[in-house]
Design a protein around this nucleic acid. Sequence first.
DNA 1: GTAGGTGCAAACCCTTTGCAGAGAG
DNA 2: CTCTCTGCAAAGGGTTTGCACCTAC
Lengths: 153, 153
Amino acid sequence: MSRHVELVQSLRQAGHRLTPQRESVLAVVAASDRHLTAEEIIARVRQRYPYLNKSAVYRSLDLLTQLGLVTQTDLGHGHVEYELHNHPHHHHLICRHCKDVRQIDHAAFVSLEKKIENDFGFQAELDHFAIFGTCKKCQPRAKIAKSRASATR
Amino acid sequence: MSRHVELVQSLRQAGHRLTPQRESVLAVVAASDRHLTAEEIIARVRQRYPYLNKSAVYRSLDLLTQLGLVTQTDLGHGHVEYELHNHPHHHHLICRHCKDVRQIDHAAFVSLEKKIENDFGFQAELDHFAIFGTCKKCQPRAKIAKSRASATR
DNA sequence: GTAGGTGCAAACCCTTTGCAGAGAG
DNA sequence: CTCTCTGCAAAGGGTTTGCACCTAC
């Protein structure tokens, strides 16, 4: 709840108005412990404001992303997912074949994150990172084509 | 050119037919030294086969991805980009604010790649990886909201 | 009072799909 | 000859936009 209040203050500080629509979007995102799609956010906000329009939600989410309060990820599901920016970091291994998504924690990424900041001055958002590849189960199937492709190289 | 021939063989080995459409898509992707969007691929293929249909291209690209010959990336531009699977690895730092894309090399990722394989048996496609964040130039702007948000935490 | 925000509906854009007909093996 | 693949056109699905109205400040 207090986090929600802080977020509202950041909005104001940046010179934006606090409308009920924005307030509800923020509240929903802040209350969730995982990433939500725009559709999920709309559904939840409508439990409180039934007539809310989806454009307002998209516009709010864009604004919140610009302000760095919310992050977007594309897990390859054909839509973007939103989450509070400072959630516990975690990442995803997504199999190209069976579409399975597996979660891994941030530990493996810390050194990478530091290196990018040192070398480029780039502040990477290594929250829920999407890594595509082939999971253990699907590797035999994928190998058939691969080994052929590189055999004569 | 010889790489192209190998790829054609992989297709056949996996039990798929070699149609002129597939052949051209492969040729175009193999001849490019960077990732291409579906639209770019269609345009290039049409220089040789003017009447080629876009569905065939999408279907070919899906197949080639399934076979592991081609990889897909989403750099957050609203469309997928395709590339030969065994291009020299490189990655991208994409700024959320100015949309600037900066290339970095694979070196920083090797240990991460190994760790994922050891811990999960997951073969990560750490080709052209998309990392979102804030670039050096834009950090002052982004900080205004951020520092507010976490000040009272 | 006046920007800035919202609601609405339509447009957008990339991608996918159903089906009949074509052609690779 | 058969079964896979293509072409076409239309649908799909998430997201964006133009414009008139509204409201937070």
